[in-house]
Design a protein around this nucleic acid. Structure first.
Lengths: 120, 120
DNA sequence: ACTCATAGTGACAAAAAAGTCAGTATTGTT
DNA sequence: AACAATACTGACTTTTTTGTCACTATGAGT
C-alpha cells in the first residue's frame, strides 16, 4: 500500500499525514482556523505571536499546496487575503483535539514529575 | 499558562505535546507499541525497516526521557531489553488513531487529486 | 512627494534533526 | 581462538527546517 506524493513514497496514511501536518506551526495554524475562520494573515499573526511572518506564510503555503487550507485573495488595495480550512482540512479536528487533550494531560504529568524530583 | 520543561518554555499543552511526539519515528514507534507490547529493539526494527537502528534508539531514548515509554533491561547475555508504553504513553492512543484515520482519508483524497489533474 | 497598511518574496545563516559507519561488551557455541 | 547475538555509543556528515533581514507592490490619505 504505497502512496506516491510530491516525489516521495509513503508506506502508510500515517506517514503521509505526518508529512502534511508536521511543520513547526501547522497544527497551531489549523487550530486557529478550526476555532475562527476565515482568518487573514495579520489575524493569524496576532494569535501566534511566537511565529514570525515568514514562517507563517511558509506553513500556509504548504498547507495550501496540500489542499488542507484554501486561500482567497480579494483584489483590493491594501491586499486582503483570507485563509480557511478545506473539507479535508476540517477533518483534522479530531487530530488537533486529541493532541490538545493529551498535551494538557502530559503537562499536568510533567508538572507533577518536576515537583516529585526537585533536581537542580 | 506557561510550561517549563527541559530548558524550554511552552505556551500550551499542544506545543508541549508536539515537542514530545514530533520526532521522525516517534508516532510509528508508539503505534507499534500500542499494537504489540512489550517489544524488543530488534522487533521494532523488523516492524519499521525504513528506520535505521541508530534513529530508533534515539527516538526510544527521547520517549523514555519523557516517560512515554518504559525500558526494561534483563541482566542476561546477549542483552535483552524490552520497551512498552507507560500510562501516559498509552493515553496517546486517540492521537495515533486519529492521525491514522485522517491519513487514510488524506491518501484517498491525494489519489483522487492525482487522477483529476494528470500533470507531468 | 511621502507615508501607511497588507501580504508577500529572495537570499542567506543558524540550528536542529536525521542518517551513516565503525566500534564496544558479554558469554555461549563451534 | 574465532564468531555469533543483542543492544547499544561515538563521531561525524548531510539534509531539512527554522529564523532573520531586507526588499516589493499598490492606492489612499495627508
Amino acid at each position: 500500500m504505497e502512496i506516491h506524493y510530491k516525489d516521495k513514497t509513503y508506506f502508510s496514511g500515517k506517514d503521509l499525514a505526518l508529512s502534511a501536518i508536521g511543520g513547526r506551526w501547522k497544527i497551531a495554524v489549523i487550530w486557529c482556523l478550526l476555532h475562527d475562520s476565515p482568518l487573514r494573515l495579520s489575524e493569524i499573526q496576532k494569535k501566534l505571536p511566537q511565529a514570525n511572518q515568514r514562517m507563517l506564510i511558509r506553513q500556509l503555503r504548504e498547507l495550501e499546496e496540500d489542499k488542507i487550507v484554501t486561500r482567497y485573495v480579494y483584489p483590493v488595495v491594501p491586499p486582503k487575503v483570507e485563509y480557511k480550512l478545506s473539507e479535508i482540512g476540517l477533518q483534522l479536528e479530531p487530530v488537533v483535539t486529541s493532541i490538545c487533550d493529551w498535551g494538557d494531560e502530559f503537562s499536568v504529568f510533567v508538572e507533577k514529575e518536576a515537583n516529585k524530583a526537585p533536581a537542580e
